[in-house]
Design a protein around this nucleic acid. Structure first.
Lengths: 365, 365
DNA sequence: GTGAAAGCGCTAACAA
DNA sequence: TTGTTAGCGCTTTCAC
């Protein structure tokens, strides 16, 4: 295309101008109002402004009013990081949490979030997709100097190599749904919960009680199993080997619907009869168990009573009798304990165990 | 108790000492290593240290090595907020997300988190428990000056009163699973998805097709309903009023298992016969529908085929044929778009619609 | 290539 | 009651 050079020149200028304009817009930074602006407008020093904004009582009512008025008019917002740097405090905590897509975590997180909001802190979230590899990485990241005032560590085995690290740097940490003797922890008494469930089964008259558990290498599964056995022996009941199935599935340690379904199928395939009640180590497995039972024409609860563990959302839907973990509550308490620890770094580690409660619904009246 | 005054005195001193000691321990701050420490040790200026640490090429190889060595030896970690303040950049984004305890959000969040980690940013989470009240509060909070470089806003109606706010302050925002003409958004084409599902039903030979939807005042429910009707009319099929049920439950707009169950019961109670296939507006409802069907001795898929929407975790378990929303993917893309917007604040709002795909399982082969 | 110094926006100690 | 000033720990000119 041939254009007169004058036009070409013009076009080029135009283009450059547009580029410049875009650049300008892109780099247009909202010119933040600082305490200096307020100080100038209100004809006071920045110290006074800071005092007013921080509720320091040593300010005359007159200047306080004036400063506040100016701040409002200028739509002042303090710069988060300037405050945090000067105060040497992060006003934030982090949560290192496995992204198992389970109801449990969302629910605990709700508790955490609510409590944190109440305290005016921020929550920095580190979701760990691969617990075997990424835990250290996220621990490292979440404790970058100054970034947070404390850490909530969820459900994963705490890496031994970081035990010293957290002591030395004295950054408070609370373990949730997991345990280490050196740190505060919040968890549910799995043993007690399973004991409760089993006791209930016994009390309503069951004799032949089966158990379907997730993989016993998982700590909660193991504890629930132990609680079950203890209740049996305390009440002089038999442990029926033929009605005991451990999950084979490795995914989520066997805490899945599929694993429950398969375990139940295995139990039935043994052709050694059926128990009158089954304790299942989690609700999600229990749902699978019930499905397997239904498919085989076995009625719940008439032929077999089923009791789960967790009280997930679906449990209510399915009318599943279960043992309730106070998830939301645990989240709240975890934050509370973390704050207590932030204020007293000396006291001995506290280990809080929530006692779960029985929720009786249709599958085991 | 009477003790010699000397002992009393001693005890008092002891007590004071203990108090002092506790106080000391509590206020023992890990004395952070700063670039000044490194500078001193490496016998260079702090400017040089900063240059090395930031990968600035204008440093001789010799000093670079030395500085790096000292930094490693002293176990240096930069102070997060000092960096952010000096750089005038937050290296963080926030997510304002309703704490509906649903699989959808966890899954999207996973995508968000993964992408964010990849980019080295932090995720500040604001879970909204009461969307009707708290949205503004959290928007406010998440945009405190300097705190984050961008905001992800999920699934809730974006408050009109904040439209101007986000423009004026030029803090980038991306809407996920919701829409506003003035901002970038990512969502799933509900209409298209429902169309696809219905088309499938038609293609495998169904004539009498029913529909069970969540409350139509919910935008996704409405869109899915429209897609369903369009497919029927495009293929010249009848819309059977007697096989259409809208949820009555208000909880979660009727996107619950219970609502699905009840809707299906209502359909059956009308005693106007049953359709050969049912399109349900969500998987969780579909599970309720199937249960109602089973209870009434109606076999799925032999008597009635059922197709859901979402592809939640349970859908796989139940062998539910459904329409899959690419949740994880959406999370990733949302972050990508947010970063693009951070780099170009001028371009017109982009609205990305994901096309959902059909997942064929047992309930509708 | 390197050091000194001036910010970033705020808090808090110190004078006045 | 106030204003001034020295940090907080880092980045980034600007001289040399």
């Amino acid at each position: 295309m041939n254009l007169p050079s004058a036009v070409c020149f013009h076009l080029t200028r135009m283009k450059n101008f547009i580029i410049l304009w875009k650049h300008f817009q892109n780099n247009f930074v909202f010119y933040g109002i600082t305490i200096y602006d307020i100080a100038r407008e209100a004809k006071v020093g920045i110290g006074t402004v800071s005092r007013v904004l921080n509720g320091n009582p040593h300010v005359s009512e007159k200047t306080r009013k004036r400063v506040l008025e100016v701040a409002r008019r200028l739509n002042y917002q303090p710069h988060t990081y300037a405050q945090r740097l000067a105060k040497q405090k992060a006003y934030a905590i982090s949560a290192v949490i496995p992204f198992f897509t389970s109801y449990f975590f969302i629910e605990v997180l709700r508790g955490v979030q609510d409590k944190i909001t109440e305290l005016g802190f921020d929550l920095v979230l580190y979701g760990v997709n691969d617990p075997s590899n990424q835990v250290e990485y996220y621990l490292q990241k979440s404790t970058y100097r100054g970034k947070v005032d404390g850490v909530l560590f969820f459900s994963m085995r705490f890496p031994e190599s970081y035990v010293g690290y957290f002591n030395q740097r004295t950054i408070p940490i609370v373990l949730v749904d997991t345990y280490h003797p050196k740190f505060d922890s919040i968890s549910v008494d799995n043993f007690q919960g399973a004991y409760l469930a089993t006791k209930h089964l016994i009390e309503i008259g069951h004799e032949k009680i089966g158990i379907i558990v997730a993989r016993l290498e998982s700590v909660p599964a193991k504890q629930r199993f132990e609680g079950f056995k203890k209740a049996l022996s305390d009440y002089g009941k038999n442990f029926y080997e033929e009605f005991f199935v451990e999950a084979k599935e490795t995914q989520l340690d066997g805490f899945t619907r599929e694993a429950g379904y398969n375990s139940c199928m295995e139990l039935l395939n043994r052709k050694k009869g059926i128990p009158t009640a089954i304790f299942v180590s989690s609700d999600i497995q229990a749902i699978g168990v019930i499905e397997a039972l239904n498919e085989n024409g076995i009625k719940v609860p008439d032929d077999v009573a089923v009791i789960g563990f967790d009280d997930i959302e679906l449990a209510k839907d399915f009318g599943l009798t279960t043992v309730r973990q106070p998830m939301y509550e645990m989240g709240k308490v975890a934050v509370e304990k973390l704050f207590e620890r932030m204020n007293d770094r000396v006291r001995k580690p506290m280990h809080i165990k929530f006692t779960p409660e029985l929720v009786i619904r249709k599958t085991c009246p």
